[in-house]
Design a protein around this nucleic acid. Structure first.
Lengths: 384, 384
DNA sequence: CCCTCTTCCTCCAGCAATCGAACGAAGTTC
DNA sequence: GAACTTCGTTCGATTGCTGGAGGAAGAGGG
């Protein structure tokens, strides 16, 4: 009512927040930090002092005067350590090293098959990360963030009943990694990491947003109150098995139900549907290529996928009333899909919920997942 | 990762929280408060002192010894003031007075028709509240909480594009009330207030829960992180116009779309559907009576309503992953509806999301709305 | 060149919230 | 009646922050 509603800004001012302001380039000096964080100059000064003492920040030269004393530039030291990131997909993975400000130093995509099972896949990826670290400047590895394409019990780092990861059920990714590498490990769902990465790196001003990952599978990550929202069991955002087609004959899903979103709109589903019509595709990337070449069947099927995703998202948008919906993953690059998803959302949501709703592609693209993985580690190691 | 995830408890310890512990009967002494709030005994003592000074608490006699010194009982004074509450429905309203601990002193149901327009309806209800206050102990009125069956811009107290409240669009309920009564006024959606009331009064331990109100219309309130979640525009929880039936011919909704949840599962929709089959019903209450009497048509239609609600809720549960789903409103008393809603949820949700999910009727019943209205006012006036 | 004004940053006193430890008050138990 | 519990208060100590004074360093005007 009128007066004293919560200000909407999350409480900015923790050591993490100050660091992020420097990392994103929003602040370059103590004065900047004071202005942006709302803290008093004295508080900022003393916080910065401890951050410098702990190696999180460094003074480096001076900036331009704005009519008075020159500000002393702050930056996050490049030699303060590197963070490893793994973003595992169904058919390929992306590994990277990032600096403490969350910027990518080196990255690499590689073909892996999730159904080869956890040990060989994770072993290969950990090796790739250590190789990237080794070929770098020699800065110490501070931790590794891991994203996997299935439900993760985040607090334990274990995989729980994934439908697209045969052989991974109950596998303890956290333990597997900590047994092999002696640094902090954080494991989460790929969609959650995508959400975290895009949010922190591109639109940290949003309080409530939904990030849909449409690749071989379909998932979503949720930001609520400026933070990653996980829900009661940590499965929040998992819209892959929402039923979208009630008519028979509805496609059978790997989860045993029929008409799941994943069974009609995921990359895997599109491949299967086209293959059944005799069109030779073996991967979602093939489908995207066909669409780019103007193949009518592929375009039609991609359009309907967008409609289906929009159908489920319309419920999500009405219920959650976010400020923005982002779409990422392989299928996000496909204009027809985005268009039909938008149409479906605008058609079926409350006008109140869509009047200022942003519906966009990820701005961080394929890097979102590894950016999020790094953020997870930064959050972990920054306090103490 | 294993270790330092957030504790899940919301920060307990504000003056509000202490008061609530006393109000709900969970704590009766300073020692209880210290144990339950996690604060140190000294902090509790001094907080309690100021609360007593401000008239929010009172010492009253001593309790039984538990092997040592007897605790001094604390209670919320009955003469500290009363709170007015209005819970407006489409065809009837409930007004009440409550004490500062949020317990109902007196309540009254009355027939009103929302389509008579805002001035006459609100005028009548405000009069009813002041009458209830007048017939009480003479304690001062501290504020009035108002719930209305449509979207409310909570920060302004104004109604925005309600589909079931002709003539109310844009009406400033807040101003109308403050112009007539010189006490704090708080306005919110009826489903939000139902959620707030049930959560605070019955299950304040839940962090994430969804409260569905199924009456003449259909709405939902959301608790996230122990707090009422409103979303970006304040329309969170509004699932009434989610499309649920893709088959033709889908019923036309008052919003102009077809197949909305409200058009197939609300009380109004059930009345219309039965009337079209020549069964003489004029209100949702009639439908409930028919179901109680075992009328097969009414039971069948109520079952399908439960299934439709469950269908939308399954998306909500997958996405939001709450600990509990509660159902309230007139239709909630109907066992077949609850049963088919449960079936639909269990069938279509991730096992992970439903394995510990509570699906229940409101425990505070018809009072939930006025309980929530009082909580809104308590929140407003308690600080200062 | 000097004086004034601005900006950046630090130092210091002080406030507010909380805690821990010590202690007094009041009871129970054996 | 001595020992042990429980309840509540008092009294520093700590923590986190703020505001103000003021020093450092520069811009600009006469």
């Amino acid at each position: 009512m009128t007066v004293d509603d919560a200000p909407g800004f999350a409480a900015r001012g923790s050591a993490r927040d100050l660091l992020r302001l420097v990392a994103t380039g929003a602040a370059e000096s103590r004065a900047d930090l004071a202005r942006l964080s709302g803290l008093s100059p004295s508080t900022v000064s003393q916080r910065v002092e401890t951050l410098i003492g702990d190696g999180w920040l460094r003074e480096v030269g001076e900036g331009k005067s704005r009519g008075g004393r020159r500000p002393r530039h702050l930056e996050i030291p490049g030699d303060g350590g590197v963070i490893g990131a793994i973003d595992l997909g169904a058919h390929h993975a992306r590994v990277a090293t990032l600096d403490l400000s969350g910027h990518v130093i080196a990255s690499k995509s590689m073909a892996v098959e999730v159904h080869d099972g956890p040990e060989p896949v994770l072993g290969k990826l950990l090796a790739a990360v250590t190789e990237l670290v080794g070929s770098g400047t020699g800065a110490a590895l501070r931790g590794i963030g891991v994203g996997v394409p299935g439900p993760v019990e985040h607090s334990a780092g274990r995989i729980v009943s994934p439908s697209r990861m045969p052989g991974w059920n109950g596998f303890d990714v956290y333990r597997f990694c900590t047994d092999r590498v002696e640094v902090p490990i954080a494991v989460d769902n790929d969609a959650n990491l995508m959400a975290l990465g895009e949010h922190r790196s591109a639109r940290a001003d949003l309080d409530h947003a939904v990030y849909v990952k449409a690749g071989t599978g379909i998932g979503a990550g949720v930001i609520s109150g400026g933070q990653l929202y996980r829900g009661a069991q940590g499965s929040a955002g998992d819209i892959s098995h929402c039923r979208v087609v009630s008519a028979d004959p509805a496609p059978l899903c790997s989860c045993g139900n029929t008409g799941c979103l994943e069974a009609v709109a995921s990359g895997a589903a599109l491949v299967q549907a086209l293959a059944e019509r005799g069109i030779p595709v073996t991967s979602p990337a093939d489908v995207m290529r066909l669409v780019d070449h103007g193949d009518p069947h592929a375009t039609a099927i991609v359009r309907s996928a967008g409609r289906y995703i929009g159908e489920i998202l319309s419920v999500v948008v009405n219920f959650f009333n976010p400020q923005a919906v982002f779409i990422g993953g392989l299928l996000a690059d496909c204009e027809p899909l985005l268009a039909s998803m938008r149409a479906s959302l605008y058609e079926r949501c409350l006008p109140l919920a869509t009047q200022t709703l942003l519906i966009e592609r990820l701005s961080t693209g394929v890097d979102a997942g590894i950016l999020g993985a790094a953020q997870l580690i930064i959050d972990r190691i920054i306090e103490s």
